[in-house]
C-alpha cells in the first residue's frame, strides 16, 4: 500500500461515525485522486455491509417457548421468602404473635392442677383455698384451678384463674379482685400482665 496510514485511519473513523467535517473533506479529496485508497475504502465499506447483513440469522421458531419452558419454576417458598424480605416488620410481628399465643395456649392447657402463689398459712380443702381468719396475706395472691375463700385478709390484689371467689365470708382485700375463666380472658390477663411487667421494668 503506497498511501499513508493516516488515510486508512480516517476511513475507519468515518466508518465509526467519528469523522469531523474537515477530515471528511480531506479524505474525500484524497479518494478522488488515489485509486488504491479508493479500492481500500470500497472494500472496507463492503465488509461492513456484509457484517451487518445478519438479519437472516435467526434461532429456531420455537425458541421463545423453549426458553420459557426451561425457566426455573418459581417456587412458592421463594415467593414467600421474597415477601418476608420485603416486609421485615410484619414478619417479626407475626413470629412474635405465633410464639406468644403458642406459649399462652400451652400454659393454659398444661396446668389443670390447683396451684396457689403463696401457700404459707393457707388451708387447701379439695379444690378450695381458704385464707383462715386472722391470717393476713402480704402481697398478691393468685389461685389457679381452684376456688378461693377469704376469711382473713389480703394485702394486695387477688387473681383467680379458672375458679370462683366464694363470697360467703367477710374477708378483706385491700387490692383488686380479678377472676379469669375463659381462654380469652386468660390471654387478656397474660397480655396485661406482660405489659404491666414491661412497664414496671422500664419504670425502674
Amino acid at each position: 500500500m503506497s498511501c499513508n496510514k493516516q488515510f486508512i485511519n480516517l476511513m475507519h473513523k468515518y466508518l465509526d461515525g467519528e469523522l469531523t467535517r474537515t477530515d471528511e473533506n480531506l479524505l474525500r479529496s484524497h479518494l478522488h485522486s488515489c485509486q488504491s485508497c479508493q479500492k481500500h475504502f470500497h472494500e472496507l465499506k463492503r465488509t461492513t455491509t456484509l457484517l451487518k447483513s445478519s438479519s437472516e440469522l435467526q434461532p429456531s421458531s420455537n425458541f421463545t417457548e423453549k426458553v420459557m419452558a426451561s425457566l426455573p419454576k418459581e417456587k412458592k417458598r421463594v415467593g414467600y421468602m421474597r415477601w418476608f424480605k420485603a416486609h421485615p416488620v410484619i414478619t417479626a410481628a407475626a413470629i412474635f404473635f405465633i410464639f406468644m399465643f403458642s406459649s399462652v395456649f400451652s400454659a393454659w392447657d398444661q396446668d389443670s392442677q390447683l396451684s396457689v402463689s403463696k401457700d404459707k398459712n393457707l388451708i387447701i380443702q379439695e379444690d378450695t383455698v381458704i385464707v383462715p381468719e386472722g391470717v393476713t396475706v402480704d402481697g398478691d395472691l393468685v389461685v389457679k384451678n381452684g376456688n378461693l375463700k377469704i376469711d382473713g385478709s389480703v394485702n394486695g390484689n387477688v387473681v383467680i384463674i379458672n375458679g370462683e371467689h366464694l363470697m360467703a365470708s367477710a374477708g378483706e382485700i385491700s387490692g383488686e379482685i380479678e377472676q379469669v375463666n375463659q381462654v380469652f380472658e386468660w390471654m387478656w390477663y397474660h397480655i396485661k400482665d406482660i405489659t404491666k411487667n414491661l412497664f414496671a421494668f422500664t419504670n425502674k
Binding site: S55, L57, Q58, P59, T64, V67, M68, L71, E74
Partner: peptide, 16 residues
C-alpha cells in the same frame, strides 16, 4: 414469569 416472554421475543434475534 409470563412477562419475561416478551423480553425473549424481543431480544432473541440479537442475542442469538
Amino acid at each position: 414469569q409470563s412477562a419475561f416472554e416478551d423480553v425473549v421475543t424481543f431480544y432473541q434475534n440479537k442475542v442469538y
